[in-house]
Every structure is written in C-alpha cells, then in structure tokens.
Design a protein around this nucleic acid. Sequence first.
DNA 1: CCGTATGTTGAACGATTGCTCGCCGGCCGA
DNA 2: TCGGCCGGCGAGCAATCGTTCAACATACGG
Lengths: 317, 317
Amino acid sequence: MAVSDNERSRLDDAARAGWLYYIAGNTQDEIAKKLKVSRATAQRLVSLCLSERLITFRLEHPIAACMELAARLTEKYGLRFCEVVPTDAAAPTAVAGVAERAAALLEATLRAEKPAIIAIGTGRTMRAAVEQIAPMDCPNHQVVSLVGNISPDGSASFYDTLARLADLTKARHYPMPLPVFLASDAERQQVMKIAPVSRVRALAEKADLRLVGIGQFDLNAQVFLDGFISREELLEMLRMGAVGEVTAWAMDADGHVLPGGTNKRLTSVPLPIPAKALTVGAAVGPSKVVPIRAALKGRVINGLITDEATAQALLKG
Amino acid sequence: MAVSDNERSRLDDAARAGWLYYIAGNTQDEIAKKLKVSRATAQRLVSLCLSERLITFRLEHPIAACMELAARLTEKYGLRFCEVVPTDAAAPTAVAGVAERAAALLEATLRAEKPAIIAIGTGRTMRAAVEQIAPMDCPNHQVVSLVGNISPDGSASFYDTLARLADLTKARHYPMPLPVFLASDAERQQVMKIAPVSRVRALAEKADLRLVGIGQFDLNAQVFLDGFISREELLEMLRMGAVGEVTAWAMDADGHVLPGGTNKRLTSVPLPIPAKALTVGAAVGPSKVVPIRAALKGRVINGLITDEATAQALLKG
DNA sequence: CCGTATGTTGAACGATTGCTCGCCGGCCGA
DNA sequence: TCGGCCGGCGAGCAATCGTTCAACATACGG
C-alpha cells in the first residue's frame, strides 16, 4: 500500500510537472521551486510524465500535402477513412506518426457515447498505437482480439496489445485464447467450436471498428521472424504468390487471401471480403507498399493510416 | 492570394515542424535540416505551431483538472498560493486531502533554513493538517496562535492545535492565553494590554505564513455549536449579514469584517485587510463555498487550499 | 529611381534542458 | 547485524533551445 501510495504520488507529481511544463509553460526551474524539488528531479518528473504517457500531443492542423494525398487515396481505393502523416525522412519506417493517428482513432471511438466493439490486430504499429492512448474510463465498450495471443512456445507472455488497451481504457476485453497457428486444419476446425473461441469470433464479427497492422510477406515476414511458421512454409507461401498479411492472413498481390498453406492452420478471425465494418490498416515504409496495395485492392481494408512517402508510392502503382 | 498561400504554407511548415518536434521527437536542428531552413527558423516554426495552437497537449490525469482550477482561481482572485486537490466523491466534505496539502505547506515552511514565524488558526481542518505533519526538529522557527485557546467553560483542554504542532516540530510556540470571546469590548480592550497577549499579537503580525480555516456562519457555525456565542448573538450577526468567519472574525458576503456584534468581544488577532503576509485559507465542502468566496473577495486571504468541487463552485460565482 | 518602412533571416550568445556520474539511504540476503 | 545492492538524488557538463541583433529582402510611397 505504501508502495502504491508512493507510486501514486510520484505519478501525481509527474502529472503536475507535465502540466506546469507543457500547459502552463513554466521552466523546469520554476517547476522545481513550485514542487519543492531539485531541478534535476523536476526534469525527471517531466520526462516521466512523457514516458508514462500521462500527456499526449495532438496535431490539429491538417497539413495540405497530406490532406491531398489522403483525398487521392480515398478516391482511388474507395476508402471510408484515410489519414496521411508527414514522413520523417531520417526514419522512414518510424511508427510514431501513424501510431498517434491510430490512437486518435481509437480514442475517438472509445469516447463515443454509444457502446462500441473494437477489434484489434497485432504488430509493432498496433502496440505503439495503444501505448499512445491516454488512460480513460470506458467500461461500456468492448475490445476484442483478431489474432491468437499464444506464441509458438506456448507462452502468452509476449507483449499483449489487447490487454494493455483494456488496461488503459477499462473496457471489457476478449483476447483470442489460442495459438496464432495450430498444427493442422483439422485441429483448427475442432478448436473453433469451443465456446470461448466462437464467442470471441462472433464478437469480432460485430465489431464497429477493426484496426489492423499490415505486414510484408517475404523473408522478413513477422510470422517467420517470430518463428510462427517455418522457412519451408514461408517459401511455399511465396510460391503461391503471398506478398503481405493482415492479422497473419497471407494475401497475394491482388489482396486475395490464399486458400492454402499456413492460412489453413491460422486461428485469426476471418477477414470479410470486401470489408464491411470500418477496417483500418496502419503501416508505413517502403517494404509495406506492396502489401498495403494488395490489402487495398482486395478490399481487405477500407481505411488507411500511413505516411506521405508511403502514400505517394501507393498512388504511383 | 499569394499572401494566403504563403500564410498557408507557413502554417503547413509550422505543423510539420511541430509534428517532427513533439510527435517524432526530432531536435530543432534535425527539423531545420529536413525542412531546409536554419535552426532559428525551425525554432520559429515550432513556436508558431504552439502559438497558433496547431498542436495541443492533453494531460489525462485527475490532477490536470485540479491544476487548471487552481490556475483559474489564482487568476480570478489574484492569489499568491493555490492548491486544488481531487474531490472524494464519496465524502465531499472530507478534509484529508486539503489537510495533507496544508501539512505540506507547513512542512515546507518549517523545513526552510530561514527562521520563520507561522501563525495558525483553529478548526477541524487545521487540526487534521497538524496531525499529518511528520515529526521534525525546528527549534529556530516560531509558531503562534491567532485565536484564544480557552473555551467558554474556562478549560484549555480541548484539542489544542498549536500545542500539537509545537510538540511535533519542537518549534517555540506562543498560544493566545485568552478565551476566544470575552464578556465585552471594554474587557477586551483591557486584556489586550497585558504583556503576554500583546507579545503574541505582535508576533502574529510579523508572521511569514498564516494558515487558517474558513468557517460558515449560519446555524451550524462552529462558534455557535461550541457554545462560544448564544443563539441570539448568532441571529443578530446573521441579520448584520454574516456569512462566514476566519479565526472567528465574522464577515459579510463581500468579506468585510463586521464592525459590531460578537466581533467586538473577540480576542483573535486582527486580520490585516488586504492580507499582507501569505495568508492561506483551507476549507472544503458546499457549505464553505459562500464563506470562502467572501474571504477571497475581501482579500482576507491571499492563498487557498480546497478541493475540485469547491473550486468549481467558487469559479461559478 | 530612391529612400524608407516593414518583415524575415541566420549568427551569436545566454538560458534551459537532458544526461552522466558519484553519493547516499533504504532494503535484502547472508 | 552487517555488507552489498538498488533506486533515487543532486552536481556538473554538454547539448539543445530561445532570443537578440544586425543584415538583408521586399513593398510602397514619393
């Protein structure tokens, strides 16, 4: 209790420091005086406030060039939602920008009165997006996972996006209590029948918003790097034309979900084609251009969050 | 048109700069390189982004609301000190929160090198504040009472805030060795002259910090409930406009200390109007709103410790 | 065409900030 | 109980930032 009290008051102070710094525009020296701590501590508090995401930045101004790109993408692919953020030339694959927009989308949905069901995928971008969410109280909303949360070694300990999201928002959450891949189609058929799984799938299918990452499907495919599928399987999928994946469903260049290979033992919630509910993909970087284009062509997604450079590349194709 | 284009693109650049700075975490040097401008210009763009409110900060922490309220109260009433603590919805008149802050203020003052004189009032809040003080060794400081410490029945045995404070801090202490009320103005005049009393008053007038409770003045007035004044006197004071009290000095709604009635036989140290030394009032609860507002209006206090709900009510008036 | 008024720019410098390092006090295991 | 470990703290320093200033560009009126 004493620990959590300490913890509490430290975060309180961090929030105070952050408020004084970013909102009231005090210098760290002034903050130090006001909170009666050394300047070094004031600095630590401000930085704690940042790292604990007590404070978040939101850019309100639509940048013309980005708007333009978003409009053209919307037009070209008949999107229901599209946001383009500036590219950071020095770090063209940095997810901070799209993560921030994805977080904004999540927050907007969660802040709505009407109880919403939000389905979410996995990956670096989703993780970063959830990290950006400001703590809030949304017990009326439900968040559900589109992808199994158990890794090949049987642990559920790798970073759990859904749990973190639920933690921050107090929304009811429904993880998919399965390995991402099972051993065979037969095993999958069986498992799909068990109540907790079918319940999660049913919920996911009613989702008002699906937010997913988009992965490349090549020698750097995340499912391969993480050891979910073997090299042989990867190569077979590539032979079958796989270029990208959404919630681990491998797709070819036209966005058709491949009927065989590892897709046969994948437990992710199926992708309605064309996407019915608002389904937003978020990804940046040269290596994501082909997969994103595939997902767009195949109507796997009907919303997109990306950056300027990627948007430009998508429009060139 | 050229102007508005310029304007537009400048704001665009500002937004970009702000994005790169706050969201992507670039330094201004990096931004300067990316936008191909000098660092000075990059700085100007970031600062423009701020001043044009292209970017906003959102602090999602209960403390944020408190800070905001404190800032507004400080502004509205020209305060030198203001703290707002979260309201405990389950116990809107609980003094724990403000007591803790009041204790922190006392401790901060006592911890200072420079010998300080602290004058203190009475009441539930003061008592709770003193209870929160951590024992410390401050023989160089002096604490003095603003209110007599003898109750109507002649005993000095009721809870003695000052003695407890002195006990915890080892500070030299100067109680006011008088009944709170004497029988008449004449008697008061006489008693004021005796050395111990005038010494305490002289000391109190030099106090670096005055910390006082703020009381309502109605049928639940503490001075009435404790039997210091009669029902008839209370009613007379109410007819004269009394709404609240600070160190038992009855004030009207504008914070003017009433010239007659029970104030004529009150022994409390007079309230300099407007308050000169840092004079902090501490109070919480719906019934305290009117008295606090009076004290603020009348410049009886120039510092305040209260809670969110009370602060909100004060700002509405 | 010139001179002035206005505004923008980058260099420079002082202020502010972030970070590293050594120190201290509390906590845990021996 | 004692030593070692760990986390937090402040001193000090290097990086970063904010502002001033003089120079330069541009617009505009004479």
